[in-house]
């Protein structure tokens, strides 16, 4: 599904190149559950954003479903990203001004789905995640765990092939975290590819493979 070949990422600052990712080679099959681990500043988030097409590699080749992503322009990237990828963040990143319902609806709106279908989809996901009662609440009226639940729901609502989660349980209590991890595992079992960044060995164990990053290099 995903193939990274010799990916480099650096920032140029006053003519000094600061490398964040070095010579990354990574193959990911459809249906895998990958955990990226490593110390702070290792480049985990950067890698995740590259995979999510929110950022571009400085060098190297990135194939997504055999498409050469590194050659695509912004618009094509945004199309690809919109239809195949869902994001979950450590800070949840819900839109404060919108209710739970509207937050869930937003990705569908951007995909120009008609309102009838949207209604059905949102209703469905509210059911699945057991948050029907919360649909008219605003994010700040929810606990952290509940917010992340919505965050995951929002990531899966457009039925992406790939879910990218950057420390999804980083801000949660252990039992809340466990619930989210189970959710991701569940999605994975139904066929969605999941890539998560985590600092926790316990959480990493939900996955089938661990990628260790250190100073931008993948450790073997």
């Amino acid at each position: 599904m995903i193939s990274l070949q010799n990916i480099e990422k650096y920032y140029t600052n006053k003519f000094v190149k600061t490398y964040v990712l070095r010579n990354i080679n990574l193959e990911i099959e459809e249906g895998e559950f990958i955990s990226i681990m490593g110390p702070s500043g290792a480049g985990k988030s950067t890698l995740l954003y590259l995979l999510g097409m929110l950022d571009k590699p400085s060098d190297g080749e990135y194939y997504f479903l055999d498409e050469p992503v590194h050659k695509f322009n912004d618009r094509k990237l945004s199309e690809l990203h919109k239809s195949y990828i869902g994001f979950v963040f450590q800070q949840y990143h819900l839109i404060e001004e919108l209710t739970v319902y509207e937050n869930l609806e937003t990705p569908l709106i951007y995909q120009k789905m008609n309102s009838k279908e949207r209604k059905a989809r949102v209703g469905d996901i509210l059911d699945r995640f057991n948050i029907v009662g919360k649909k008219d609440l605003f994010p700040n009226q929810l606990s952290g765990g509940q917010q992340q639940l919505v965050g995951v729901a929002r990531a899966v609502i457009s039925e992406p092939k790939l879910i990218l989660a950057d420390e999804p349980t980083g801000n949660l209590h252990t039992d809340q975290g466990e619930e989210i991890m189970k959710l991701l595992k569940n999605l994975n079992e139904k066929g969605t590819t999941v890539i998560q960044v985590t600092h926790s060995k316990v959480n990493a164990a939900y996955g089938n493979r661990i990628v260790n990053l250190k100073d931008g290099w993948i450790e073997r």
Partner: peptide
């Protein structure tokens, strides 16, 4: 900024 960022990540393009 945050709201805009999220909207972009959720697939909102410039025109929208």
């Amino acid at each position: 900024g945050k709201e805009i960022g999220i909207r972009k990540i959720l697939g909102g393009n410039k025109k929208q």
